[in-house]
Design a protein around this nucleic acid. Structure first.
Length: 911
RNA sequence: GCCCCGGUGGCGGAAUUGGUAGACGCGCUGGACUCAAAAUCCUGUGUCUGAUGAAGACGUGCCGGUUCGAGCCCGGCCCGGGGCACCA
């Protein structure tokens, strides 16, 4: 019987499905382990070979943990709301739900072929009303909560209201509060709610007809679709993520994530310690205090101007009558620019003088106030002090508009550029003179506080997340408007399901498709017409897997306390500042309210690398239909053309297949080398347009899922990006065939009850030890190498012993579950190998009694010496010194010292 | 510009974390079996010198350092990948 992977894989896949082998229940007698993949967005293109890389890695880990006695939660679902299905719907008129159903079905069938141990009974899609009910529920909780800075956590808004009523809060007295109308009260509360309606400058994308979050915009273009994005003031739903900035930052320290990923999050959060300082200003004779933020309080003596952001509210009050016209012209110019233009023209310095002046609080000197787009309204106070000598942006501005530049650090040459470094000795700086910069910063802060000129302040770059999208295919907001006041629906009204509409097109001017829905009201009040963004549904999905069928709670306290949080999370690094920030925020919010018991959702995170495509090229001689082989192409003027990798084998073109590939190549002529057409190649992104897509289904057909799983892991470290190269797959396939032959010779099962030999036990236990180490550290590639070595050794030893071959199957089962399961049953087991126990490692079998030491003289190895393993370094030294070979190499030289590394090396240092 | 990560044969990648660099696999060389092919098995495979031998020298992006010993540590560069980018 040959290794018939097709039969084996089909058989066990249906067995696992029928027996629900991977169904998991809470079981307090076993330790839990939660292994999660970032669930996919089911796109129309289906899976290519690169997509399952992370799923394979996590599946191996999950299977390994089961063998180690853990109760493993390993679920899978679909992130099914989102723009592509809706864009497709707009183009075709087909309901996004239908597209989503089809895509999900395709994904499911592709995933099923790979032998994953998912508990499909826990699966859901984010667009299922039973699921998004809980997305809406969490939103309601956020709407009804505020962030209490004293308790440093989210609390019910009701508590805030009672504070306003009884003792007053944040400058509002109980008397004032009582005098407010409902509308005024509502506006005050909106300033505190975690989910709130607020007017801010948002990323408006006309091409998609919706606003976007910061992480959905890159280089001024939308990530989905690549449409230009402009800044626009709009009243939108937002989540007060910024309230959690400090906790999101601090929480990173205890997570097992890669440093680069933590750095990305730290960067995104952007904590910066500085000082807020109040400058008096004079505009047409009127005085008014203006607060600025700086991290360099020590440089106040070098302030020669102030700058406001064009969008700042201060612009209006600080523009003098004489400058009104110029300022208005500048504001119009700035407003017209798209985000992309602003970013690409960062070196283009622009600005306008307001006609008013500020007063330096330390020197009393008057300085002009300007407006420039290099100052951002959304950060700090939207106003800065300009210190051209020690800030490159201020420097460029001062040069352009001829403003004075005063150096403050001894020896700093500011004739060509600013001196930004935080080192050196202060000069021209009054009481700071002579201090080192770091001391001076601290001294200036103390001075500012003591003289009541301002205060210490920590600022964050992290902004609140814009939470509305003017789109159809997303969660509706459980909010209606009564007399213009946003009013939450009762929880009993959830889920608020999407209505049917006749067209999915967004309307111009920012009106959402839901505005066209008939009767989109709740008890007569109009419902919110925006929907939630893509990240809403993916922010807490890992919690729902713990208790997916619960209709009363998002997750029961028992299930939450058992599963707690994700022990291992596997996914791409592209979610570093989007999903992974939102999820942590969402989780911390639910933690504050006591719905979940862990503060952080993902303990350990592994970012799988991308699998790149290996593209092939043919070279057409310009102006002809003749193609020249890669080695000869330099002799001609050629055009490089992508050719489908599926008609190229080992870089040799299948000429007949090429002629049939596309009509224009039907009469193609070829210039061959050695009778073959050799294609060029390059590593590129795997994509349809490069004709380098390899479909996992085809690999499963020709090699089987076990081979595919092994090969993807064998290719290199999981975290690393690496190119796919189908020709290497034969190696692991050969390994599996060899593995099979260890158990079967023709139809004869070779397994016996023979006692294993020492050599066999050594091969097995070396592998057991290695596998434990390698899987825990995600070194799957080296583990597969170790497997190949072990199988070669056991083949050479002619092993038939059950005591070796049975544990060997368990070791293989995480990697190649189908073949392991088949042989497991052939050995007489009636239960799945999934329930087996990982074999115990016994180091006694793997140790040698002697060690071959390389003996080196001044670092050069001259000969080897066989010595007992148990010998102490002193004994090794004595033995080596006594060897005749040693005497020969030492000759008349003098031994300076002898270095012995136990079990490794002996180095004799000669003079 | 700033912050990460990386650079090892023809290719993917190993190297017990400072101890015989190149494991394992691919590819390639030669061979066995076969009428032939596929499949399978065996052999060789970093570079150079040498005679296809024995043997030796060089070799982990570049230059320098520490060390008995450096792919690994330190200093200075070069190149590639990723992230951030007027955040005061």
């Amino acid at each position: 019987m040959d290794y018939d992977f097709k039969k084996i894989e089909a058989k066990w896949q249906s067995y696992w499905a029928a027996e629900k082998t991977y169904k998991v229940e809470e079981d307090s007698s076993k330790p839990k382990f939660y292994v999660l993949d970032m669930f996919p967005y089911p796109s129309g293109a289906g899976l290519h070979v690169g997509h399952p890389l992370g799923y394979i890695a996590s599946d191996i880990y999950a299977r390994y943990k089961r063998l180690k006695g853990f109760n493993v939660l390993h679920p899978m679902g679909y992130d099914a709301f989102g723009l592509p299905a809706e864009q497709y719907a707009i183009q075709t008129g087909q309901h996004p739900e239908k597209t989503t159903d089809e895509n999900v079905a395709r994904y499911r069938s592709q995933l099923d072929r790979l032998g994953f141990s998912f508990d499909w009974d826990r699966s859901f899609r984010t667009c299922d009303p039973d699921y998004y009910k809980w997305t809406q529920w969490a939103f309601l909780k956020m709407f009804k909560s505020w962030y209490d800075p004293e308790k440093d956590k989210a609390r019910p808004v009701a508590e805030l209201v009672s504070r306003f009523e009884t003792e007053g809060y944040d400058g509002i007295t109980p008397a004032q509060w009582k005098a407010f109308s409902d509308k005024e009260k509502d506006e005050v509360l909106m300033r505190y709610r975690i989910a709130y309606l607020g007017e801010t400058s948002v990323n408006w994308c006309e091409g998609l007809g919706t606003v976007l979050a910061n992480d959905e915009v890159k280089d001024g273009l939308s990530v989905r679709g690549g449409f230009p994005v402009v800044q626009k003031k709009m009243r939108q739903w937002q989540l007060r993520v910024s309230a959690y900035a400090e906790r999101l930052l601090a929480g990173l320290d205890k997570l097992e994530w890669t440093d680069s990923l933590k750095d990305m999050q730290r960067n995104w959060i952007g904590r910066s310690e500085g000082t807020e300082m109040v400058f008096d200003t004079i505009c047409d004779g009127r005085h008014m205090p203006v607060t600025i933020f700086t991290t360099r309080a020590d440089t106040v003596f070098g302030v020669t101007f102030m700058v406001l952001a064009p969008e700042s509210e201060l612009v209006e009050t600080l523009t003098s009558a004489s400058m009104k016209k110029e300022v208005e012209e500048y504001l119009q110019y700035a407003a017209k620019k798209t985000e992309r233009e602003r970013q690409s023209e960062t070196r283009n310095v622009t600005g306008v003088f307001t006609g008013s002046y500020g007063v330096n609080p330390l020197t009393g000197e008057q300085i002009p106030i300007w407006i420039s787009e290099y100052v951002l309204a959304g950060y700090g106070t939207g106003a800065i002090m300009g210190v051209p000598a020690h800030d490159s942006r201020d420097y460029a501005f001062a040069k352009k508009f001829n403003l004075p530049i005063i150096p403050l650090i001894e020896g700093a040459d500011v004739s060509e550029s600013s001196f930004d470094a935080k080192e050196g000795r202060m000069v021209n700086s009054g009481f700071l003179n002579g201090m080192e910069v770091k001391e001076a910063i601290e001294a200036a802060k103390v001075y500012v506080e003591e003289h009541k000129l301002g205060r210490r302040k920590v600022n964050y770059r992290l902004r609140d997340a814009i939470f509305s999208r003017q789109r159809y295919w997303g969660e509706p907001f459980p909010i209606c408007y009564k007399d213009g006041i946003a009013t939450p629906l009762p929880e009993s009204a959830l889920p608020l399901t999407l209505p049917e509409i006749d067209s999915f097109k967004p309307s111009a001017g920012g009106e959402a498709p839901l505005a066209r829905a008939k009767d989109w009201t709740y008890e007569g009040s109009p419902l919110e017409t925006s929907t939630m963004p893509g990240f809403a549904g993916s922010s807490a999905y890992y919690l729902r897997y713990m208790d997916p069928h619960n209709s009363e709670e998002m997750v029961s306290a028992e299930a939450d306390r058992y599963w707690r949080n994700v022990d291992l999370y596997v996914g791409g690094t592209e979610h570093a500042v989007g999903h992974l920030i939102y999820s942590r925020f969402w989780n911390k919010f639910l933690f504050d309210l006591g719905y979940v018991c862990e503060d952080e959702p993902f303990k350990k995170l592994v970012n799988q690398g991308m699998i790149q495509g290996r593209s092939n090229f043919v070279y057409r001689i310009v102006g002809t239909n003749t193609f020249v082989s890669a080695g000869l192409r330099k002799k001609y003027e050629t055009t490089e053309i992508h050719v489908d990798v599926n008609i190229v084998h080992n870089d040799r073109l299948d000429i007949e297949a090429f002629r049939k590939w596309r009509p224009e190549f039907e009469d193609a002529e070829f210039v061959l080398e050695n009778g073959e057409y050799i294609c060029g190649w390059a590593i590129e992104k795997m994509s349809k347009s490069m004709y380098n897509v390899v479909n996992p289904d085809e690999i499963c057909n020709s090699y089987g899922a076990d081979t595919l799983r092994l090969y993807e892991m064998f290719l290199g470290p999981v975290e690393q990006s690496k190119p796919w190269d189908t020709k290497g797959i034969d190696g692991v396939h050969r390994f599996l065939k060899k593995f099979w032959r260890l158990y079967y010779n023709q139809d004869k099962l070779l397994v016996s009850d023979a006692k294993p030999s020492a050599a066999e036990l050594k091969a097995l236990h070396t592998l057991i030890g290695k596998e434990q180490e390698d899987i825990e550290s995600f070194s799957y590639n080296t583990n597969i190498s170790a497997f190949m070595i072990a199988v070669n050794e056991l083949t050479d030893l002619g092993t038939t012993s059950r005591e070796i071959l049975e544990p060997l199957l368990i070791l293989l089962s995480p990697f190649a579950p189908h073949v392991a399961e088949e042989l497991w049953h052939d050995l007489g087991h009636s239960d799945s190998i999934t329930g087996a126990v990982f074999p115990e490692y016994n180091p006694a079998f793997t140790v040698e009694d002697s060690v071959t030491y390389p003996v080196s003289f001044n670092g050069k190895t001259r000969f080897t010496a066989e010595l007992p393993k148990s010998a102490s370094p002193a004994e090794v030294e004595a033995a080596v010194r006594a060897l005749p070979d040693t005497a020969k190499y030492v000759a008349d030289k003098q031994i300076v010292k002898v270095i012995v590394v136990p079990g490794r090396i002996v180095n004799i240092v000669l003079k």
